[in-house]
Write a protein that binds this DNA or RNA. Structure first.
Lengths: 219, 219
DNA sequence: CCGTTACTCAAACAATCTGTTGACTATTTT
DNA sequence: AAAATAGTCAACAGATTGTTTGAGTAACGG
C-alpha cells in the first residue's frame, strides 16, 4: 500500500513534535539556540541529573533536532540547524499569541523593576548602524563567542558588579541576554539602573535576530 | 519564586508541542488547515473511532491549537489561527529537511506516474496573472469554498471521471489538492495525463500559498 | 414524544514516558 | 597502572497516553 508511506511521514513528523513536547527538552533547545553545550552544562541548566538529561538528549537526537560530537571526554550537543531554532521560536510565538497563561506568566516575570525596550529587530539594527545606543550582551563568554549582535559589548552577568564601569557612557544601553524570558536580562537591567545607567532590556536575543535575517558576528 | 513562572511558560509551550506529537493529531491539523471540519469527518479521514477522535481533539483544544463550535447537532472544529497552520508547515518542512526517511517516503509516494511541477508559489502566481497555465483544485467542495487559489477551476477528485471534459483546453493544467503528500493529487494528475491533458502536479496547496503571503479567494 | 444522530465522558487496560539508581565505557589525569 | 571525569545504558517504579467499550446528552426528525 502507498498509504503506508504516508502514515510513515506523519509518524516521523510526530516524533519531532513529541520531542518538543517536554518542558525540559524545550528549555534545552532554547539553550542550544545560543550555541553548543555539553551534557553536563545542560543538566545544570535544566536542573536534572546527568542520566535524565542524557535520556532527553537521546530523544532530541532520534528526532533529528540535535547532533552530538565527542571531543575529549565531553560530548557537545548542538542544534541540527538554524531551522530548528526557527521552529522553537515559532512555537514560542504561537504560545504567546494563543495561550493567556503564557502572556500572564511573562507579565509576572517582568514584575516592576523591568524596563523593556519596545523596539523590534529592524529598529534596533537602525539604531546600531547610526551609532545611537550601545548593545550589551550579558550571556556567558562561549555564547557571546558563538554569535552576538554586531558591535555588542560583552559584559557577562556574573561580572556585572565588577566590570560595569567599563561600559561606554553617554549613550542608551540596549541590554539583551537569552531572550524574552531570561531572568538575567531583567535582573541585569535592574542592577544597571540602580547605578544610574540608562539601560533598557531588549525583548529578543541572537536567535530572533538571526531569524529576522540580520547579520550575526561570531568571534 | 519568579522561576516558577518561567517553568510554567515552558510547561505550557510543551503542551503545545505534545499536541503535535501524535500522527493522528498532526493529520487532523493538516486537514483543518484546509477549512473547518466536523468530528465525524475527521474521524473518517484519520481512520479512527469517533470517541478516539474526540479525545484527540480535546488534546488539541486544551493546547489552544483548535477551537470548537456547535452548530445544529454537529461540532465544527477549526484551527485557532493561521499561525497554527504556519507552525504545522514549519514542522513539516523541517522534517523534510532533516529526516531522510521522510524524503524517502515522499519519493515512494510519488512513484513513477507522478509529474511534479517544480515552480514555487511566486512563480505560479506570475503564471496565473499572465494567463499562462490554468489552476485546477481537486479538493472537496467545502474546502474549495473555504479558500482556493485565485482563478482556480474546481474539479473535485470524485467527479474527475465525469467532468474532466469541462476543463479548459490549450493551456497547461497546474493541479493541486491538499499538499505535497496528497495521494489524490498524484492520482488525479495520472488520470488526466492518460486522457492526454497536459497536467502537472503542484507541490503546494492553499495553506502554503497563504503562508507565502499570496491572496486566497474564498467563496 | 420517541428514536436517531453526533458527539462527549468515564472506566479500564496496554503501551509509552520520566526520573532514579547502579553498572559500564571511554578518555584523561596522576 | 590506578583514579577520576563525562557520559551512556539497563532496569525499575510511577505517571501519562491512546484506544475501546458502554453510558450519557444535546439537537433534530418524524
Amino acid at each position: 500500500m502507498v498509504d503506508a508511506n504516508k502514515d510513515e511521514i506523519f509518524e516521523s513528523l510526530a516524533s519531532m513534535g513529541q520531542a518538543l513536547g517536554n518542558p525540559h527538552r524545550l528549555k534545552m533547545v532554547s539553550l542550544l539556540s545560543h550555541g553548543e553545550k555539553t551534557v553536563e552544562r545542560l543538566a545544570g541548566a535544566i536542573g536534572q541529573s546527568l542520566a535524565a538529561t542524557s535520556a532527553h538528549l537521546k530523544v532530541l537526537r532520534n528526532a533529528g533536532l540535535v547532533t552530538a560530537e565527542k571531543r575529549g571526554r565531553h560530548v557537545h550537543y548542538r542544534l541540527a540547524g538554524d531551522e530548528v531554532s526557527a521552529l522553537w521560536l515559532a512555537l514560542r510565538d504561537l504560545g504567546e499569541r494563543l495561550r493567556p497563561e503564557v502572556r500572564e506568566a511573562i507579565g509576572w516575570l517582568s514584575g516592576d523593576g523591568d524596563v523593556l525596550c519596545p523596539l523590534d529587530e529592524q529598529d534596533v539594527w537602525e539604531q546600531v548602524r547610526q551609532g545611537r545606543g550601545v548593545l550589551v550582551d550579558l550571556r556567558p563568554a562561549d555564547e557571546y563567542a558563538a554569535g552576538h549582535l554586531p558591535e555588542a559589548c560583552h559584559l557577562p552577568f556574573e561580572e556585572l558588579d565588577s566590570r560595569a564601569r567599563e561600559l561606554p557612557t553617554g549613550r542608551d544601553l540596549l541590554v539583551y541576554c537569552r531572550g524574552p524570558y531570561c531572568l538575567m536580562a531583567i535582573e541585569g537591567v535592574r542592577q544597571l539602573r540602580t547605578r544610574e545607567y540608562p539601560a533598557r532590556r531588549l525583548r529578543f536575543s541572537v536567535p530572533e535576530w538571526k531569524a529576522a535575517g540580520l547579520p550575526v558576528v561570531s568571534s
